[in-house]
Design a protein around this nucleic acid. Structure first.
Length: 275
DNA sequence: GCGACAG
DNA sequence: ATCTTGTCGC
């Protein structure tokens, strides 16, 4: 017996051929990426970080001009069978941060998680949920979607949020709860910048890699939270607009659309006897 | 060689 | 992602 590896148990390596194929796809799709504001709505007025009063007072002629529906998407996995997951897409009314619609699917994922290639595992099921929503409640289709995972903040500048945004042709924002170390960025470096900036009110700053390119932003979304969240452009939205949109939707550290999708996808697992 | 590596 | 309850504090 030599060190021949067995294809059964601990075979989690993806072949180099597949990885280079995935890289080709990412590089190719990246040509379609739009990183500025390409939508018709405007951020809601009176953005005090939370509910904006006067939402009901918007003139009818102005309806549709403002952001109203924000989507959030997430997956939860079975602890017993890591290939079984429940994917959930929620739609929130930005004026109340209440969930107005939810669609879920239980799925079996055959593509493994490989850092830098999350989209190949999660994008297909999320795209299905968007289609499902389009066919069942088109009037609630989100004007912008928040994805748990990064956008431009990615080794090749094309994370899950970009990938899904391009596929769905929808404005998307990437939300990372942990920093993907890219272009010289490190957790400690970011934290030090955050604390050096003082525990003042200005709790957001741009992430610029060693290469000099802007990759996203770190945001202390709650007054007391030491750990920031990481915002990056997905598709058809600028970083500035993405930051404002995220600020509008934060009740807790994790933006409400993502948080609700997370909670409800976990509930979905339990409800189906998985978990 | 060692460490890092979104979810 | 998941393994994990209570607990200290505003």
């Amino acid at each position: 017996m030599s060190t021949e590896k067995e294809p059964s148990a601990s075979e989690n390596q993806s072949s180099p051929q597949l990885l280079s194929q995935w890289i080709e796809i990412q590089d190719s799709m990246k040509k379609q990426l739009i990183t500025d504001d390409r939508f018709s709505w405007k951020l809601p007025p009176v953005c005090k970080g939370q509910i904006y009063e006067g939402a009901q007072d918007i003139r009818d002629s102005d309806r549709g001009k403002f952001l109203k529906y924000i989507g959030g998407a997430d997956l939860s996995f079975s602890k017993t069978d890591p290939s079984i997951a429940c994917a959930t897409l929620v739609v929130l009314d930005v004026s109340t941060l209440e969930v107005v619609h939810e669609v879920s699917n239980t799925v079996e994922l055959r593509v493994p998680y490989v850092p830098g290639f999350l989209a190949f595992r999660e994008a297909p099921v999320l795209l299905e949920l968007l289609e499902k929503l389009k066919n069942t409640a088109l009037q609630l289709y989100p004007q912008v979607l928040m994805v748990d995972g990064n956008g431009l903040l990615h080794p090749r500048g094309f994370g899950l949020a970009c990938h899904l945004g391009v596929l769905a042709d929808l404005p998307t924002i990437g939300i990372g709860k942990n920093l993907h170390h890219v272009d010289g960025l490190t957790q400690h470096g970011v934290r030090q910048l955050l604390e050096a900036n003082g525990n003042s009110c200005s709790d957001v700053f741009t992430l610029i890699g060693d290469s000099g390119s802007t990759l996203g932003a770190a945001l202390r979304s709650t007054v007391g939270s030491r750990k920031p969240i990481f915002i990056s452009v997905g598709h058809r939205i600028s970083l500035a607009s993405a930051i404002e949109t995220v600020k509008l939707s934060c009740r807790y550290r994790v933006p409400e659309p993502i948080r609700q999708a997370d909670i409800r996808s976990r509930d979905c697992l339990r409800k189906h006897g998985l978990s």
